[in-house]
Every structure is written in C-alpha cells, then in structure tokens.
Measured scan of single mutants.
Amino acid sequence: EPEARKIVEKLINNGLSPEDVKRWAEKNNNPEVKKAAEEYQKR
C-alpha cells in the first residue's frame, strides 16, 4: 500500500519512531499503516 508507506515516512520525518507510528496506527485503527511501519523497520 504506497499511500500507507507515504504516511509512515511522513510521520517518521516528523520525528516519530516506527514504534510510535505503529501505536498511532493502532489508535487510529489503521492496519495498513501499521503494516507499512513494520515493513519500514525491516529495511
């Protein structure tokens, strides 16, 4: 999901860690963003 990846990169560029992004995604019920954050961590 390229859109989710863009969101993850934007949040990380704004100073969030991938863990923060995953928590944000869970709080906002956004499994695509959570998955993208996990993939981002593996890179």
Rank of each mutant, 00 (worst) to 15 (best):
A25K: 02
K35M: 08
N13W: 09
N14Y: 13
E9I: 14
N29I: 04
E39W: 08
K27N: 10
R43P: 05
I7M: 09
N30L: 15
E26F: 04
E38T: 06
S17K: 05
P31S: 08
E1A: 13
N28D: 03
A37D: 00
K6E: 12
K10L: 14
P31C: 09
N29H: 09
A36T: 04
E38A: 07
E9W: 11
E9K: 08
R5Q: 11
K27Q: 13
A37P: 00
E39N: 06
A37H: 02
N14Q: 15
D20T: 04
L11I: 02
A37C: 06
E38M: 08
E1C: 13
A37I: 12
K34G: 09
A37T: 03
K42N: 10
E1N: 13
W24H: 00
V21I: 15
R5T: 10
R43E: 13
K22S: 06
E9V: 09
E26S: 04
E19N: 06
N30G: 01
R23M: 09
N29W: 04
E19H: 05
E19F: 05
V8S: 01
E26R: 02
Q41V: 10
Y40R: 02
I7K: 03
E1Y: 13
I12F: 07
S17V: 02
K22C: 10
P18E: 04
Q41D: 06
A36C: 07
V33M: 06
R23V: 09
W24Y: 02
I12N: 01
E38K: 04
Y40K: 00
K22L: 14
S17G: 05
K22M: 15
R23T: 08
E39H: 06
I12E: 02
E1Q: 13
Y40E: 02
N30E: 12
G15W: 04
K6W: 12
K27P: 00
L11G: 02
A36Y: 10
K35W: 08
W24N: 00
L11F: 11
L11T: 02
L11W: 10
A36M: 11
L16W: 15
K35L: 10
E38L: 09
I12M: 10
A25I: 02
E39P: 01
K22H: 06
K10V: 11
N29S: 08
E32F: 11
G15H: 04
R5W: 15
K34Y: 15
N29Y: 05
N14K: 14
K6V: 11
E9N: 08
G15F: 03
Q41N: 07
N13M: 14
P2E: 15
I7D: 00
E26Q: 06
K6L: 13
D20V: 04
K10W: 15
S17P: 02
K10R: 14
G15P: 01
P2L: 15
R5Y: 15
E1D: 12
L11M: 14
A36S: 05
R43N: 10
E39T: 05
D20F: 05
P2G: 14
E38D: 08
E39D: 09
K34S: 08
